[in-house]
Design a protein around this nucleic acid. Sequence first.
DNA 1: AGAAGATTTAGGGCGGGAGA
DNA 2: TCTCCCGCCCTAAATCTTCT
Length: 346
Amino acid sequence: MASRQVTLAEVAKQAGVSLATASRVLNGSTRQVSEELRERVLGTARKLGYLPNASAQALARNSSVLVGLVVHDIADPYFSSIAAGVTRIAEDAGLVVVLGTTGRDPDREVELVNTLRAHRARAVVIAGSRTTDRNASRRLAEEITAFTAQGGRVACVSQAKLGTDTVVPANRSGARALARQLAALGHRKFAVLAGPPQLLVARDRLAGFKAGLADEGLDLPDANVFASDFTRDGGHAAMAGLIAARTGATCVFAVNDVMAMGAMAGLREHGLRVPEDVSVAGFDDIPTLRDLVPALSTVRLPLEEMGERAARLVLDDVVAGPRTVRVAGEVVLRASTSTSSGIGLR
DNA sequence: AGAAGATTTAGGGCGGGAGA
DNA sequence: TCTCCCGCCCTAAATCTTCT
């Protein structure tokens, strides 16, 4: 047992004080310890290289410094931006963020929250869209209830469907405003790369976009809506389908930015130019867009701020019922959308 | 006597050894 | 094979000691 850890008991013994006194000096307490003993304990701890055993602390306190962050896809900059916000607030509070990835599997989501509960995580932020699967929602809601009953806190960044504090981005109204501005550029024939039909964020953005077109007296035929994965590759694949379908659309809305990026790559491969041949818009305004040429029109969500707000919800002392923080989206038109050329995807 | 400082002790969840 | 209990490391409440 050469590499056995130095324990608090050893420090206390060496310093000639009780366990409790050593604990107070090293790990904090409301009680006072005299300066003389404080110095002695700190000196001994330094000499022995004492490091508190976090597992034992979690056991004794029935709480840890862990804050769980559950996301669908770590490769999607949407989630890394939210993670940056969550991490900033949590670390300012002296806590540590642990990241879990679901791969959009609802069961995995429940498992992760369960595991975080087992580790006595102080709080969990669940970022990522809900789905139409009622059973999955119920299972997750049950797990959240159990976690909350144990003293943990949970907040979501998504649709407010789980009975918890939730930061809700304005997917519907953002897409609606985007549709109207694109129509104002003179476009009349639109196509949408829509993501998976069961994903609520994708549904909301599609519905909002349709509503915005309807505001302008325009219709979006079902044949111009292409479902696919909510990823770069999904956007790429959906664009291939769209090009093959010869819809004549002059403007394409991808329901998130990474799909739009995949779609633009697909257009390039077919020798089509953005925006001369077809305009493209996305949603989210992920940071990656700064280096995209042509610059992508999108609906900006304050992603890092959304993460920060979720973290604050989960770390504050308010015990009120489920709170909802609504976050607006702002349409940002850039070089990827221009006035309609009238040619489109023929 | 009362405050301040220090110690003792119970207990938290789980694995593993001892004993039935 | 099963049950019981201890040890792991630490915190917090209860208790004790010292000093003004």
